[in-house]
Structure formats: C-alpha cells, structure tokens
C-alpha cells in the first residue's frame, strides 16, 4: 500500500510586492513530508524558512502553488477556515514560549484544550509528566526557568493531539545545555504521540534531533537529506 504523505507542497511561491521590487520569499518549493518525520529547516537569515513555516501552518497564504495536507487542500485567504485548520491539525512552539502569564502551567495547557473543545485534565497532567514538569503544575510561568517554560510550551502544543508540530527558533532563547534538554523532550514527545514535526532554526547542532534536514536559501530548497 502506498504511504500517503502528510504534507505536499507543489511549486509553492510567496512573493511580496514592495514599492520598487518584488521580494520572492519562496520561489517554487516542492516538498513532501511523511508522517512521523522530524524535519529541520536550516538556512541563513532571510532565506525564507520562516515564510515556509508560516505557509505550512496556514498563517500565511502562498501566492502560487498547491498545499495539500492529509490529501486535502489547505484553506487559503479565509481567516476563520485557516484558524480552524490550525486548531485541528497544528501545534506551534514559539521562540519566547508565549505562555499566558496569568495562568499556571497546568492551566496554560487546559486553556488550549478548552478552546479546541477537547478538555482533558488527565491528558494535560500526563503531558506535563512527559516533559518532566509534573511537580510544577501550579506554578506561574514567571516562577519557572526558560527551559522549563519551553517544555510547558511543548506540552501545550501537543495537548490537542495535532498531526503536525511546528517550531520557529524554539531554542533561540535558551543556552546550549537547556536547548539539548528541550530538544530531547520534544523528540520524546513526538515519538510518544506519533507527531510529525518541522522546526526552523539556524543552529546546526540541532541536526542530531532530526530525521531529515532541508536547507533553504533565497526561497528555494538547496538540499534535502534524510538522517538515519
């Protein structure tokens, strides 16, 4: 039986019309990602990796090309439909964690579950255990370290069982030791929950946590290698 890819991008382009020129942030990306892969997008600043991530997460709409997710066309140009798509399929981890300061660690996870209509406190506690923060459930984000906050953010992002987890420079605000811990947690969570993941980074040292490395420059994929 032919395995159906989770993500298919065909000739995806994203152009921005500026006053004096057209900026081609993505200039014809063809990409297939299967379920279970952990993909790292590497590239220098301005290469288009974040733009690609934005298009994959349906935060942005490509100017041209196809985007098929789990055999269905991803909504374009319709804010609520794109939001629904993200809610049902995507988990997102930010560079600066973006935890809600007025909610405890546990409540940050419960909130996302409530907004998705899938409240499950047991699962929330299980995820916190998974990321090694079972004892911190009633702390506020400002009372825990950066690395711990990022792990909470990871737990939050997989709380609603997304198909795809995305992260943009998610270790950009952490020291190297913490970054390693966070990435190990992430890999463990993805394997445990069977989640496909795509991370954007410029940090080559994170390659060891990926199953595939895609290098981007000037809006084009310049290399794509699987890592055993």
């Amino acid at each position: 039986m032919t395995k159906v890819p989770l993500i298919e991008l065909k000739n995806m382009k994203r152009h921005y019309e500026m006053a004096s020129e057209t900026v081609k942030a993505l200039d014809g990306i063809d990409l297939i990602i299967d379920e279970g892969e952990r993909v790292i997008l590497l590239g220098p600043s301005g290469s288009g990796k974040t733009t690609l991530l934005n298009c994959i997460s349906a935060l942005d709409t490509p100017t041209e090309g196809e985007y098929i997710f789990d055999e269905k066309d991803v909504p374009r140009n319709k804010s609520e439909e794109m939001t629904t798509f993200r809610r049902e399929n995507i988990g997102y981890v930010f560079q600066f964690f973006n935890l809600l300061q007025d909610l405890t660690v546990l409540e940050n996870i419960l909130l996302i579950q409530e907004l998705s209509g899938k409240k499950d406190q047991e699962r929330a506690l299980k995820l916190l255990e998974l990321v090694g923060l079972k004892t911190e459930t009633n702390r506020f984000p400002s009372e825990i370290s950066g690395g711990q906050q990022q792990r909470v953010a990871i737990a939050r992002s997989i709380a609603k069982k997304p198909r795809l987890l995305l992260g943009d420079e998610l270790t950009g605000n952490l020291d190297s030791e913490t970054s390693t811990k966070v990435m190990k947690t992430l890999v463990s969570a993805c394997e445990s929950e069977k989640i496909t993941a795509i991370f954007v980074t410029h940090d080559e040292s994170l390659v060891e946590f990926a199953t595939r490395v895609i290098r981007i420059d000037s809006g084009k994929i310049i290399s794509d290698e699987k890592i055993s």
Partner: peptide, 16 residues
C-alpha cells in the same frame, strides 16, 4: 495583543 495573537496562532476561534 501578545496573548490574543498567541491564541489565534494556536487556533482559538473568534467566537470563543
């Protein structure tokens, strides 16, 4: 803004 945009990115619907 910070909080609301985070929730929108994470998929929170407008009505909620």
């Amino acid at each position: 803004d910070f909080e609301l945009s985070t929730l929108r990115v994470l998929g929170a619907p407008m009505n909620k």
